[in-house]
């Protein structure tokens, strides 16, 4: 019966993930013949392009850098928020939680366009800074890497809050009270009790935001001004503009490999943290 429960999910995965991925895998071994032409064969040409061309290495590094930066900033911003939501005994806790994750109800495309309005050279931020007389030349954030980071942090913040609140299950107020009764100050309590107990949740939040960021297409595309090259946008360009499907497929597989490495590294870290927290 237990296996039977898995069948619907496995069926969906097979049709919606495994089969398309197998098609992508097969496509990566075909040869691009120029002008959108594809020769059905078995060649490593596209993989050779991906792994020997410094341009694709640069794109992959930009993607990972963006992922790490957005994940780190998002978790830093989300941490106090998630901690407050877990600890609070207010009757408004439910409402506050809903407010924290409410931005998820709005499409990320709409939120990205919102950021374009805010960060644009005639945008809200520019108007405020020049209106207050702080600068005559407001910083150019739209159409730049910095703008992409800012927008992605806001867009993925609710995901981090959700992941962290559900990962803070080990946090037990009595442990902090015990530490206080033994003379530990606020900083010591945080560093020796709260932080270790919440680290698994932090790692979950980091992993989730990292994975969402490196696969993000819309925000880097819209706010990056065509200058921020990430794997997702490169795959789109190769597939729909240059019509080089084998290369797009090979790049897609590289993205999957980056996912795999990230999940493995975070999994190892998670296990190490668990062992450290439980004192084993």
């Amino acid at each position: 019966m237990a296996w039977g429960l898995l069948l619907p999910g496995l069926g969906v995965l097979l049709f919606a993930y495994a089969m398309p991925m197998l098609w992508v895998l097969r496509m990566a071994f075909n040869r691009f013949t120029g002008g959108g032409g594809i020769e059905i064969t078995l060649t490593l040409d596209s993989f050779a392009d991906v792994f020997t061309d410094p341009y694709y290495l640069r794109v992959a590094l930009t993607t990972v850098k963006l992922g790490l930066l957005v994940a780190a900033i998002t978790v830093l911003v989300a941490y106090p928020l998630a901690l407050f939501l877990v600890r609070t005994t207010s009757k408004w806790r439910g409402l506050l939680t809903i407010l924290a994750i409410a931005p998820m109800l709005v499409s990320s495309v709409a939120r990205t366009y919102g950021w374009m309005v805010v960060l644009g050279n005639q945008g809200l931020l520019s108007a405020v800074l020049t209106g207050l007389g702080l600068t005559d030349t407001p910083p150019q954030l739209a159409n730049q890497f910095a703008g992409v980071v800012i927008a992605l942090v806001q867009i993925f913040l609710p995901y981090a809050v959700l992941a962290m609140t559900s990962g803070f299950g080990r946090l037990d107020a009595t442990l902090e009270q015990a530490a206080a009764s033994l003379g530990a100050g606020r900083i010591t309590r945080f560093l020796r009790v709260t932080l270790p107990l919440t680290l698994p949740g932090v790692l979950t939040g980091l992993l989730l935001v990292f994975v969402l960021t490196i696969s993000a297409y819309v925000t880097p595309r819209l706010i990056g001004g065509g200058r921020v090259f990430v794997l997702a946008s490169e795959i789109y360009d190769q597939a729909t503009n240059q019509l080089n499907w084998p290369l797009a497929a090979a790049l897609s597989l590289v993205l999957v490999i980056v996912f795999g490495i990230a999940v493995t590294v975070f999994g190892l870290l998670q296990r190490r943290v668990e062992r450290w927290v439980s004192g084993r």
Binding site: F32, G34, G35, Q242, N244
Partner: peptide, 8 residues
């Protein structure tokens, strides 16, 4: 046409 991808 055959040079399009290379130019882009």
């Amino acid at each position: 046409a055959p040079n399009y991808a290379g130019w882009v």
